[in-house]
Computed example of a mutant assay.
Amino acid sequence: MELTATTDTPQRRPGVRDADGMAVASFVLGLLGLLVLNIVLGPIAIALAGAALWRGTQRRGRALLGLGLGVADLIVLATLVQSGGVWSFGG
Rank of each mutant, 00 (worst) to 15 (best):
R55S: 08
T79N: 14
S88I: 02
L69H: 07
A72D: 10
A63P: 15
G85R: 07
D73C: 15
G50E: 02
G50A: 02
S88D: 12
R55H: 08
P10K: 03
V71S: 11
P14Q: 01
L34H: 10
S88H: 12
M1N: 10
I75P: 13
S26E: 01
I39Y: 06
G42W: 00
G84E: 11
G91I: 02
L3N: 08
L32N: 06
M1Y: 08
L34A: 04
L32S: 11
L31Q: 10
G21C: 05
G30Q: 00
L65Y: 10
P14N: 02
L37N: 10
A52E: 00
R62Q: 12
W87M: 11
I44H: 02
G85I: 03
L74Y: 10
R13I: 00
R60G: 11
A78S: 15
W87I: 14
V36Y: 06
G61T: 08
L69D: 13
D8N: 09
L65I: 08
A52P: 08
D18G: 14
G30H: 01
G15Q: 04
I46D: 05
G90N: 09
V24M: 11
F89N: 09
A63I: 04
L65N: 13
W54Q: 03
G21M: 04
G66N: 08
D8C: 02
T6A: 06
R12A: 14
A23E: 06
S88Q: 13
F27Q: 13
A45H: 05
L80S: 15
I46L: 05
I46C: 06
I44W: 01
A45F: 02
G15T: 04
A49M: 02
T57I: 04
G61V: 06
L74Q: 15
A78H: 07
V86Y: 13
V36G: 05
G33V: 00
M1C: 11
R13C: 01
A19D: 04
Q82L: 14
V36D: 11
M1L: 07
G50S: 05
R12E: 14
A72Q: 08
A72G: 12
R55K: 15
W54A: 03
G66S: 07
L48H: 03
G85Q: 08
F89M: 10
V81A: 15
A47V: 09
A5S: 12
R13K: 09
A49F: 00
